[in-house]
């Protein structure tokens, strides 16, 4: 069984992909950063020396030291531990928002590219409307709409932030998928499937979608980073995760007034966001090169 698997073209392809990836140091660096964050998110409780939300009023606003690697905040909470716990929130926001927007966007794009005509026209104009608003402004509007008139949230504030960002990221997937579908639709193997009497559903999901995946994967990887920035942005202005949640954006928000003297409270979460986004962008760039059929042989 295993012998047979090794001969499978899929594995040969994978090996070749690894080879291509190995040639780009930057994407390897990106992958390393991502793996480091994954490690942090999985083994949080082992890495973090303190509980993230335990208040220790005896040790408020300590500068970075061996005891508190990134210092402590105004309630004496260990910034390092909070930042490590923040990794989990970053992955939660990123993965959830990307999977929602990816699923909805891909479906819409597939539908509109494959059906064409009125379906296409209506869907794409809707997407244009979404794109006509600045990204963050629209997200803010959506979160506000999810708030109760007397204040407070219908949903969990973190979730409403994620939902808002998911909605505003849909158009980019929809447009991307529509474009690829339009070109794959014209290939002869799709026509052959039609000549065999395959149903539209089968053609769309068996023939067209698997051949349009490459750009979607790249886009999803790249946007994991940007989604986290936007989510952090929302919590920074108080519309996403709320304090005392150790979410990076919220950490920066609460640390921003302390910045001139107690710089460590906001700086370290900021650096984490930077690294997180950079990791996914570098890796995404590498993926694009690997999946580009022109570079393959």
């Amino acid at each position: 069984m295993f012998e047979e698997m090794r001969k499978e073209p899929f594995f040969k392809e994978m090996r070749y992909s690894m080879h291509l990836l190995g040639q780009s140091y930057l994407s390897i660096a990106g992958l390393a950063i991502i793996l480091l964050f994954v490690f942090m998110a999985v083994f949080t409780s082992f890495i973090a020396p303190y509980e993230p939300n335990v208040i220790d009023l005896a040790n408020t606003l300590q500068p970075p030291s061996l005891e508190h690697l990134m210092g402590t905040d105004e309630y004496g909470r260990d910034v390092f531990s909070r930042v490590i716990y923040g990794t989990r929130y970053a992955f939660l926001e990123g993965l959830l928002a990307v999977s929602i927007s990816l699923t909805v966007g891909t479906t819409l794009g597939l539908l509109s590219g494959y059906r064409g005509g009125m379906t296409d026209e209506v869907t794409m104009r809707l997407m244009d409307i979404l794109l006509a608003f600045p990204y963050l402004v629209l997200a803010i509007c959506i979160v506000s709409a999810l708030m109760k008139p007397e204040g407070g949230f219908f949903l969990d504030p973190l979730m409403s932030g994620i939902l808002a960002i998911s909605i505003v990221s849909i158009p980019s997937y929809a447009r991307l998928v529509r474009g690829t579908v339009l070109s794959v639709k014209e290939t002869e193997f799709v026509e052959a499937a039609r000549a065999n009497g395959a149903s539209s559903l089968r053609i769309a999901f068996v023939h067209i979608l698997p051949n349009s995946l490459a750009p979607i994967i790249v886009e999803a990887t790249m946007s994991l980073g940007t989604v986290v920035i936007s989510a952090a942005g929302l919590s920074f202005i108080g519309l996403g995760a709320q304090p005392p949640t150790p979410e990076w954006g919220a950490l920066i928000a609460s640390g921003r007034f302390l910045l001139p003297t107690y710089w460590w409270c906001a700086t370290f979460p900021g650096i984490m966001i930077l690294l997180f986004v950079m990791g996914f962008n570098l890796f995404g760039d590498g993926l694009r090169d690997i999946l580009d059929p022109r570079l393959r042989r």
């Binding site: 290939t187 002869e188 193997f189 026509e191 052959a192 000549a195 023939h207 698997p210 051949n211």
Partner: peptide
């Protein structure tokens, strides 16, 4: 039907 281009006619 059998098409001209054997490269694009197989998924």
């Amino acid at each position: 039907i059998v098409f001209q281009d054997p490269f694009s006619s197989l998924n």
